[in-house]
């Protein structure tokens, strides 16, 4: 008798949390759709939905086809995919290391990928494929270096973050140097590599990003259940039967690849990887795996920032500036919160 009531209680609570998670995820997906469509409709001239749909189905519409196919569609897709990659990758790191500060933005993984990409573009003048590979390799190398340097006798997340910040300063110095040496590169290019932007993304730049996101997202989501056990700490995870080393390796590989390729395509759109996880967690509540919601939050952030940057001001700001202006105060807020609670 007691048992049935407790059964009831548990399954109701579970259902409620699940329902909330589903509802939030659907809303986020809906919002992402609305923003994506707006990306296609809005611009110097506003096109009608029917025109855009006809163009997407391959019809030639005077004036519309060029703008949509060569400018707005690639821009929208880049924002969509990069936002998803940043969001989900950032969330994986934050959950795995159990600290919202331990994300690719703060500990310099995005800077590593940027440096790799900038090096290939400016110094080697390499093609797309090489740039993608280089940014992944540089991102992974950054992870390995941070890991090796922060190992110490006792692992400490604080040490890892400090080392990440130091490494980031060095990598940013590298990027500045590359940009200076490639003197023919003008300021917009520099800004793109320092803050991230969807400006001027072209269709032929997208395949690596599309492939990476489609390939790694299912892997990371499949590992999500293990990730939520990993959250309970190494010892609990092992005793619950999680192969911790393999899980971590898979998660790091997947999220670094996604983040690195996204960075190589759009530049490091500031703070998206940092913001998405905590926002998604707050929206869906604890107990619901927040990887997909985090990816969707990332999409919404990037697309909304790009739209805002394009149309809200007299000047067209790159998306990364807008996300930085939202993200940096949130980082400060989070620090104050963590300091008060004594988490640092």
């Amino acid at each position: 008798m007691n048992n049935t009531s407790s059964l009831e209680m548990i399954s109701t609570g579970r259902r409620q949390r699940r329902l909330r998670g589903m509802a939030v995820t659907s809303l986020l997906a809906l919002l992402a759709c609305v923003l994506s469509v707006s990306m296609l409709l809005l611009g110097n001239t506003i096109y009608s939905i029917s025109d855009v749909i006809r163009v997407l189905f391959g019809e030639q519409v005077q004036g519309v086809s060029f703008a949509v196919n060569t400018i707005r569609l690639p821009r929208m897709l880049a924002g969509l995919l990069a936002g998803f990659a940043f969001g989900i990758g950032g969330c994986v790191f934050q959950t795995m290391l159990r600290n919202p500060l331990a994300n690719p933005n703060v500990i310099g993984i995005t800077s590593g990928s940027s440096a790799g990409a900038v090096f290939c573009i400016i110094i080697l003048q390499a093609d797309r494929m090489v740039i993608s590979v280089a940014s992944v390799v540089a991102g992974l190398a950054t992870v390995i270096v941070i890991y090796l340097l922060s190992r110490g006798k006792v692992f400490s997340i604080g040490r890892l973050i400090l080392i990440g910040i130091g490494l980031q300063a060095m990598l940013d110095a590298f990027i500045s140097y590359f940009l200076l040496v490639g003197a023919q590169q003008d300021i917009p290019a520099a800004l793109r590599w320092l803050t991230g932007s969807l400006n001027g993304t072209q269709m032929h730049e997208l395949p690596p990003l599309i492939f990476t996101v489609l390939f790694f997202t299912p892997i990371v989501i499949l590992l999500g259940k293990q990730l939520s056990i990993l959250e309970l700490g190494e010892q609990s995870a092992i005793s619950l039967g999680v192969n911790t080393d393999k899980t971590r390796l898979g998660l790091i590989l997947g999220s670094v690849c996604m983040i690195a390729i996204a960075t190589a395509t759009t530049g490091p759109i500031a703070f998206v990887a940092f913001l998405s996880g905590p926002i998604a967690k707050r929206l869906v509540g604890a107990g619901f795996l927040s990887l997909v919601p985090a990816g969707l939050v990332g999409v919404n952030l990037v697309l909304a920032a790009d739209l805002l940057g394009q149309f809200a001001f007299d000047y067209r700001y790159p998306a990364g500036i807008i996300t930085a202006i939202i993200g940096a105060p949130y980082l400060i807020f989070l620090l104050i919160h963590m300091n008060r609670k004594g988490d640092l």
Binding site: I321, A328, L331, L335, L344
Partner: peptide, 26 residues
């Protein structure tokens, strides 16, 4: 503590530098 100061500094730097860029580029 070092970690708190560094993080506070890094976060503030990031916030300020994005403001600098935002004011500057238009």
């Amino acid at each position: 503590t070092p970690i708190k100061l560094v993080l506070a500094g890094a976060a503030t730097s990031a916030a300020l530098s994005s403001l600098v860029t935002a004011i500057m580029i238009p």
